[in-house]
């Protein structure tokens, strides 16, 4: 059990030695930069696209709804 704990701590403390991730060791700076850059690109781009699309639809709905509400309120105030 103690040996397992020591091994776990050793892995956590030295990811480079353990090669625990794709860019932790054995690569040039260019390769590390490419891996990190493309990981960031592929992680954040879809989020940006989704939030951008939702925001566009929200803005479009606001520009349509506001005049509609004003029109409804004015018709409510008008004499029957």
């Amino acid at each position: 059990m103690n040996a397992a704990r020591v091994l776990l701590v050793a892995f956590l403390a030295s990811p480079t030695t353990a090669w625990a991730c794709a860019v932790c060791g054995g690569f040039s700076d260019d390769e590390k930069g490419a891996y990190i850059g493309t990981t960031a690109l592929l992680s954040f781009l879809p989020l940006g696209l989704i939030f951008g699309g939702v925001y566009y639809v929200y803005r479009a709905s606001q520009t349509h709804v506001t005049p509609m509400l004003e029109r409804t309120e004015s018709s409510d105030r008008s004499p029957q």
């Binding site: 040039s28 260019d30 390769e31 490419a34 592929l42 781009l45 696209l49 989704i50 699309g53």
Partner: peptide
Amino acid sequence: MIFVGTEIMFFAGMISAFLISKASTPGG
């Protein structure tokens, strides 16, 4: 909009693979 979003991700994947292959060239 949805189609273009998927296409952007499609090209992002290809560009990512290209950049890693380019960076992994022997001698740079």
